[in-house]
Design a protein around this nucleic acid. Structure first.
Lengths: 154, 154
DNA sequence: CCGGATCCGTTTCGATACTG
DNA sequence: CAGTATCGAAACGGATCCGG
């Protein structure tokens, strides 16, 4: 709290990239880990991002939750564990994440074709998106591996 | 100076979202303005973003240039004017920007269908991407309007 | 142990003023 | 017009501590 100043927001509808919410280095990384690696817990995010500080991670999770991208609910069998799930709004970020992955595989990996998984996702774009959507809708937050060998992920 | 600490960078190829470069609130906004509105100059960016500070804008332009997303070249007829152009690496961000636009039109505009332009782009996805690519390759950095009425932009 | 909260030094942001 | 200079405010990030 303590005086959260709202941003400028001058353009009404037309061209907002909505980067005020997800336009930072960590938020999309968290969403990516959820979608592609099936991560759900604080600990998992902590280990799979490129080393995010715990306070920053907590801050981002709360921000994503406040923005309606994810929801956090206590694990049924383990009270101390919190499971985060993607909402519809968060799931709809899948195409964005996928395109960034594709872009990164082409330009960031700085080479030929080091990442076969991304290549596979790009090939079966619609199928991959449908799979992500189905998984998170059904609360079956398992990683994206082993869909008849189409996608694999470290 | 004074100790520029390189980031962690532990994952080699597989899943880097490369958000270290474009993962902030302004960089993609600049790229979007170039792609969709045909902006090329400091002044244009200054007026079309949601009010970016001049020093931040200068910083982002240099960062994008250093990352190979854009190049800045002095205008032939006007020495003091600098024209920024998208490189291939920057042009390849078009799918990313488009997906974010689509996402934002659905979730951020918080309503039914306020933005027909984005809707049009989503419908003619490949054509729009091809058009962006062609324009910036040929140095004809005009806005995206008036492609037989398919896309229009404020 | 897990999911944070709190403190604290460093870095970056962002608004305004100013310069070539 | 296209940027710097400056400076307060915010965020980052590490380390450590806390509640369950």
């Amino acid at each position: 709290m303590t005086g959260k100043v709202p941003p400028k927001h001058r353009s009404g509808c037309p061209v907002s990239l909505a980067l005020e919410t997800i336009g930072d280095r960590w938020s999309l990384l968290i969403v990516r880990d959820m979608m592609v690696r099936g991560h759900r817990t604080f600990k998992q995010f902590q280990g799979s991002g490129e080393g995010i500080a715990t306070n920053v991670l907590a801050n981002r999770l709360r921000k994503l939750e406040g923005g309606g991208f994810i929801v956090g609910e206590a694990d049924a069998s383990d009270g101390r564990r919190v499971n985060y799930r993607l909402t519809e709004k968060g799931i709809d970020l899948a195409p964005v994440v996928l395109e960034i992955l594709i872009w990164g595989a082409r330009h960031e990996a700085s080479g030929g074709a080091p990442c076969a998984a991304v290549d596979n996702m790009a090939k079966h774009r619609e199928a991959m998106l449908a799979e992500v959507r189905r998984r998170w809708r059904e609360r079956d937050a398992t990683p994206l591996q082993a869909k008849s060998g189409e996608w694999s992920w470290p």
